[in-house]
Amino acid sequence: MNAPVVAGIAAHDPPALVADGLSVRFQVGQGSVTAVDEISFGVRPGEVMALVGESGCGKSSVAMALAGLLAPNAELTGSVTFGDTDIVGLGERQLSKIRGRSIGVVFQEPMTSLNPVLTVGRQVSEVLRRHAGMSRKQAAEHSVELFERVGIPDPRTRARSYPHQLSGGMRQRVMIAMALACRPRVLIADEPTTALDVTVQSTILRLLRELGREDGTAIVLITHDLGVVADIADRVAIMYAGRFVEEGEVHDIFAQPSHPYTRALLAATPRQGEAGQGRLAEIPGIVPVLHEPATSCSFADRCTRVGSTCHESRPQRSRVGQHHVWCFHPVGEEGSR
């Protein structure tokens, strides 16, 4: 299920996207909340990297930060590089030239994410007209091809439909066609199947992965569902309270989860085939809201393996087998307890 990186894309290709020391803080009233706390990662062309965590762990903030779509009250630090462009600190005008061309985004709600009063064909065409310099006619023609590519039956007719005339799955295909219209280097998929019928979830995910590989697009997949990760991701980062707690190849982490939180997540997820609705409610406690960057392990209060160091300083990245973990007492190092 976790196919190795496909032929033609070497494991040491330069990454399409690099986030370095990325932090997001929101100004709320007089204070501020740290949503993302200095995370770093890279995604290679054709690779699917999943960011997983409970709601409130900061994964959606990462997605919005990568696309430069954070709310005005958000403060972004660190760097996000596509090729050689760092988008942190760019103005809306410069960002608008990168978005849609180098970064595509697929949102969670295909119902509300499409404009209800414009035809879906038009909504795809306008990306092409803006970034690929196509005429109205060329763009319309190419939109139909894109619809065909994302598996929309009868694409010519469908292009003239309005969003409310399409099913959820079809709408999400439209979103994908829109996001991939200009063959971006990076596609950000924020919970792309959460709002869809279970029956179409897997089809949409596979479509995303296939198209990503064909075009060599790096995909950042945001999800709370480890079933989805197992389905299509090559690599995964588990997020907790704005930080990574474990990161590596999907099969390594699934085979040898080392962070207590990852283990808890996996335990809370139904096995494959039992409908992947891991709601993770089984871990006691809630994700803390951080007003200041944490000075201890954020998971300490919910952790079963907590020790005194956990409350005193922040765990640094360490290597466990083939992947990385941020933990003072990772599972598998029994001697340390």
């Binding site: 696309a67 608008s96 978005r99 849609g100 949102f107 509300t112 404009n115 306008e126």
Partner: peptide
């Protein structure tokens, strides 16, 4: 504040296009 305006921004459309074609058109109703 709607999702489709966020989508329009994510598509990198020009500010004016977003305001007139995506925002105002819906407000006309």
């Amino acid at each position: 504040q709607t999702d489709y305006i966020r989508t329009a921004r994510a598509k990198g459309l020009a500010r004016w296009t977003i305001i007139v074609q995506h925002g105002a058109r819906n407000s006309l109703i």
